[in-house]
Design a protein around this nucleic acid. Structure first.
Length: 593
RNA sequence: GGGGGCGUAGUACAGUUGGUUAGUACGCCGGCCUGUCACGCCGGAGGUCGCGAGUUCGAGUCUCGUCGCUCCCGCCA
């Protein structure tokens, strides 16, 4: 084993070209692969940047060649040698450095390596749990290096953009106060205050508002947030937000700045030109047309409300849904009438997940409809349906009848499913949109009260203020979500900046004045002491990077992510702690049997 | 909390109706090979079939439980 000593590389492994031929260079890196021909030995030397082929020739230097026989996969090497053009016909077009190779005159083996449990290459077939267990090896794979590099470039671009637009990057506490609304908090026990707890922030929401009240005008932070809820492919217990807030602005200012930032980011990272401004769509329209508040606009397939047409029909399922205040909507899968009975059964099971009790369908054939429900409709009803839905020969039309919520959930997801099946989604297509005019609150059946849809500090729309007491569910908010390809990548709002309004909203959310004072007293006090009009936005950085990288899971753009059970397979966190630690924290653990 | 999928050499998989010695590929080790780049050829080692019970003359295979990974529902302002 050789010491590093004064050995320093002159180039990384992605930079040598034909122009460097004849130069003496020093390279360092990992042995990706060794090809021993008995005589000459080739080694692919890999680092973060790429691969360079190094050559050991016994005729050139027998001692070095002998030493090179010991090289195995992932050994850490340094070499000194002469850059040389490869013999004609021996160039490797797959490598950036494929025109040249380095003829080694000196070899240092800085470290050996155990045989890795999986190969360090992109086209690997290995379970994710093994990758997570040996994450330091997984992170050596070029694709992961690429993902981490994109992440770095993105955060760097965002910082520079916001810096140039007068924003201050400011930090906010991680040890903070548990608040009643929203997600479950991660709690941290306080040793010096026995029995009391901090909460890790779900977002720096209140702090950034307080910074506006403190007069900082423009704030941002690339910040970790924590939510103790169950995980998904796009949800981790700790995740990163680009958090920003501005004073003396309205919705348009924030949306305009944000979309220019995102367009700049896509240009800087992917070289993709994103047309501005983004499409705007109201919550109501999004739900009507796409059954979702984060519609995927890369394709059409809009939903169609047919409640009026079928309300009086002989098909009881539809008529009764309408009678009970529900709705009936249709999804026209253009040209999909060739789906088999089994496909339709599968899709029925697919929508049942979202609470749909059934999935009616009509195949539009040459002369008539092929459908189990066609017989229930009069000729007039058929004509009206056909016209409203735009039914043409070869179409397959789905229907769901239920409450508004179930119908939209079921058909909204069916729409995505069908688009995938019908291959309607182009690669490299980025459909951005703003969704606006969200409801301010909605009734929560389990809590038996109104809860904020966004958060309780979101301002209501002025024109809906009159409804606040009479019909609170109809009050729209000054919130906006940025949606990309069916993923919510950011969201924000204009905030309440006057104490009486904030108290009114707390009251509408059934938060008692005493509780409001206890939990948010500092906010109420600050609102009364010269709070400027303000608003902001937070981007889900991990989701954004996953889309930029073309990854399905945000785990692939986080260096050390957690599993679905919120565990780190590498460190084995979470883990038990000593009795002493618990005693110091005044904690006793009771575990259910 | 609930539903689906997966779990067999280091890795990815195959394994028939429950049947006697659990295979294949890659990787690994050894030998040969002076222009490969997924080098090639020859040989070899390597298995708690996730774990635990049960059924059976006999379980990788069937049953139950359990653990882990994953996708989804609930949840995630």
């Amino acid at each position: 084993m050789d010491a590093l000593g004064k050995v320093r590389r002159t180039h990384d492994n992605n930079s040598l070209t034909a122009a460097d031929a004849g130069r003496e260079v020093v390279l360092t890196g990992w042995a990706q692969r060794r090809r021993d021909h008995g005589g000459v030995i080739f080694v692919d030397l890999r680092d973060r940047e790429g691969i360079t082929q190094i050559v050991f020739n016994p005729e050139r230097d027998p001692a070095v060649h002998e030493k090179a026989k010991a090289i195995r996969g992932e050994y850490v090497l340094g070499v000194r040698g002469i850059v040389s053009l490869r013999p004609e016909g021996m160039e490797n077009p797959n490598l950036e450095t494929g025109a040249v190779e380095v003829l080694v005159s000196e070899l240092w083996i800085f470290n050996t390596a155990t045989t890795p449990p999986f190969m360090i290459e992109d086209q690997l077939e290995v379970s994710e749990s093994l990758r997570l267990q040996y994450r330091w090896l997984d992170l050596r794979r070029p694709r992961m290096v690429r993902n981490m590099t994109v992440r770095h470039k993105a955060s760097r671009f965002v910082r520079e953009f916001l810096n140039e637009h007068g924003f201050l990057e400011m930090e906010t506490p991680f040890l903070t106060k548990s608040t009643p609304e929203g997600a479950r908090d991660y709690l941290v026990p306080s040793r010096v205050n026995p029995g009391l707890f901090y909460a890790l922030p779900q977002s720096p929401q209140l702090f950034k508002q307080l910074l506006m009240m403190a007069g900082y005008e423009r704030y941002y932070q690339v910040v970790r947030c924590f939510r103790d809820e169950d995980l998904r492919a796009d949800r981790q217990p700790e995740f990163t937000q680009i958090d920003m807030e501005m004073s003396f602005v309205g919705e348009e200012d924030i949306m305009d700045l944000s979309e220019r930032m995102i367009a700049g980011l896509f240009d800087a990272v992917l070289g993709v030109t994103v047309p501005l401004p983004f499409q705007r769509i109201t919550y109501e329209t999004a739900m009507d047309l796409y059954g979702s508040d984060k519609p995927d606009l890369r394709f059409g397939l809009p939903l169609c409300d047919v409640t009026d047409i079928v309300a009086k029909s002989g098909f009881k399922v539809f008529a009764e849904a309408a009678l009970r205040g529900g709705i009936v909507k249709a999804l026209n899968a253009k040209g999909a009438s060739e789906l088999s009975r089994k496909d339709l059964d599968d899709l029925t099971r697919f929508v049942s997940v979202y609470g749909a009790k059934g999935l009616a369908w009509i195949k539009v054939k040459e002369k008539d409809w092929q459908s189990p429900i066609a017989k229930f409709f009069s000729d007039d009803e058929k004509a009206a349906l056909s016209q409203k839905i735009g039914m043409e020969q070869g179409d397959l039309v789905f229907f769901v009848a239920d409450t508004k919520k179930v119908v939209n959930e079921a058909l909204g997801h069916l729409r995505l499913q069908m688009a995938e099946r019908m291959k309607l989604i182009e690669d490299e297509c980025f459909a951005f949109a703003w969704v606006t005019e969200f409801p301010l609150m909605e009734y929560d059946e389990t809590e038996k009260r109104n809860v904020a849809l966004h958060h309780p500090f979101t301002a209501p729309m002025d024109e809906d203020l009159a409804l606040l007491e009479s019909e609170p569910a109809r009050v729209r908010s000054r919130a906006y979500d940025m949606v990309l390809n069916g993923t919510e990548i950011g969201g924000g709002s204009i905030r309440i900046h006057q104490r009486p309004m904030q108290e009114k909203i707390f009251s509408a959310l059934s938060i008692e004045p005493s509780e409001a004072e206890e939990k948010f007293g500092f906010l109420l006090s600050a609102l009364a002491s010269g709070a400027p009009p303000h608003g902001g936005l937070a981007f889900g950085f991990d989701r954004l990077i996953a889309i930029l990288c073309g990854e399905k899971s945000i785990r692939d753009v986080i260096a050390f992510p957690k599993t679905q059970k919120a565990a780190c397979l590498m460190t084995q966190a979470p883990s038990p702690v000593s009795a002493l630690q618990l005693t110091e924290l005044s904690l006793r653990v009771s575990r259910p049997e």
